[in-house]
Simulated scan of single mutants.
Amino acid sequence: MQVWTEVSQVPTGWGPSVVTLGNFDGVHRGHVAVLRRMVDDARAAGAHAVAVTFTPHPAQVHRPHDAPPLLLGDRDRIELLEATGLDAVLLVTYTLDFARQTPQEFVERYLVGALRARTVVVGRDVRFGWQNSGDLSTMRGLGEQYGFDVEVIADVRPDETPDAGPAHRRWSSTWVRELLVAGDVRAAADVLGRPHRVRGVVVHGDARGRELGYPTANLGATTGLVPADGVYAGWLRREHRPDGTPVGQDRVLPAAVSIGTNPTFEGRERRVEAYVLDRTDLDLYGEEVVLELVERLRPTLRFDSVDELLARMAVDVEDVRRVLGAGATRSGSVPT
Score class of each variant (00 low, 15 high):
189 A>E: 04
265 F>E: 04
24 F>S: 00
316 D>T: 09
274 A>G: 01
282 L>Y: 06
156 V>G: 01
276 V>W: 04
170 R>T: 07
34 V>M: 09
41 D>R: 15
236 L>H: 06
195 P>M: 06
175 W>M: 05
97 D>F: 14
142 L>E: 07
310 L>E: 10
102 T>W: 11
203 V>P: 00
139 M>D: 00
168 H>K: 14
211 E>R: 15
328 A>W: 12
297 L>V: 00
89 V>W: 04
296 R>P: 00
259 I>L: 05
76 D>M: 11
163 D>C: 09
15 G>K: 03
51 A>E: 00
116 R>L: 03
50 V>H: 08
77 R>Q: 10
6 E>Y: 15
96 L>K: 15
121 V>A: 03
314 A>D: 15
108 E>W: 14
326 A>G: 11
114 A>G: 06
7 V>S: 12
186 R>S: 12
336 T>A: 15
225 L>V: 07
144 E>I: 08
326 A>S: 15
148 F>L: 05
198 V>T: 05
78 I>S: 03
156 V>N: 02
219 L>S: 03
119 T>L: 07
314 A>W: 13
110 Y>P: 00
22 G>R: 07
100 R>Y: 13
253 L>D: 01
166 P>V: 10
134 G>H: 08
76 D>R: 15
145 Q>C: 10
41 D>Y: 11
212 L>S: 10
13 G>I: 06
289 V>S: 02
47 A>G: 07
290 V>S: 01
324 L>R: 09
54 F>W: 10
30 G>D: 02
280 T>S: 14
297 L>N: 05
60 Q>M: 14
115 L>E: 02
328 A>Q: 11
215 P>A: 08
257 V>K: 03
303 F>S: 02
310 L>W: 09
182 A>R: 15
160 E>S: 13
226 V>G: 05
31 H>I: 02
154 A>T: 13
279 R>M: 01
76 D>S: 13
277 L>P: 01
62 H>A: 14
